[in-house]
Design a protein around this nucleic acid. Structure first.
Lengths: 120, 120
DNA sequence: CCGGATCCTTGTCGATACTG
DNA sequence: CAGTATCGACAAGGATCCGG
């Protein structure tokens, strides 16, 4: 699977920029976060997360992250009943990213959001 | 300076979510990247970066990142001639975030973008 | 010139209703 | 329950114009 096939366009060759082309939105890293915490998540599991993603955005992000090899379905031929996602090796390699973001926000965003808590 | 004062709304108390409320777009972390690389950047320096941000987006992001205490003007009373931004302590604390993103993209996005190079 | 505001077009987000 | 269709709201992006 290549970039052209998923309709991906890269703004530049910079890895950080490419990463933002894939993950640079408000939702993608929260999906990754959920999967880092719970290993597997269903469509409705994601919807239960406290940020309340809407169905079309969730479906699109799951599609994109799957296309980019970050997540995958546990069983590709699963029915709607038992259908869940997990991280690929690439997705698991995002753990340091999410953790460093967590650490940063936890120590530098407190002044702005008094509610910021360790609990997710 | 508090969240209400900058019109900030938080989707949840999760630090990762809060971080995405501040940095979760395609441009913010590229601005941080530039400042990590060059220490100080002017408005037009940012515009010269290879992703070609447009003026209105840049102005808005600089405003938001300033409001969130991530960047600051070197000299608040500078004229248009000598006017540049730098990272605050909070912004410099984002170095591990940008670096881990760089490392991830460099090793996991190559299959999708053959042009991904170490050079920024 | 440079920083930045404004206008305008296009694209994406997000809520909700709806379908298999 | 997973996913799609629709539509209004809003953000992105380009061009252009203004002030110092």
């Amino acid at each position: 699977m290549h970039s052209k096939q998923v309709g991906m366009e890269w703004r530049s060759a910079c890895p950080v920029s490419c990463a933002m082309d894939v993950l640079g939105d408000k939702w993608s890293l929260l999906i990754i976060r959920d999967l880092l915490m719970f290993d597997t998540r269903t469509y409705s599991n994601f919807r239960e997360s406290s940020e309340h993603i809407s169905t079309n955005i969730l479906a699109e992000r799951l599609k994109r992250l799957t296309a980019m090899g970050v997540i995958e379905r546990i069983n590709p031929e699963a029915t709607a009943r038992n259908n869940a996602f997990q991280l690929t090796e690439s997705g698991q390699a995002l753990r340091p990213v999410v953790e460093s973001i967590y650490v940063w926000a936890d120590s530098h965003l407190r002044d702005f959001n008094p509610d910021t808590a360790a609990a997710i």
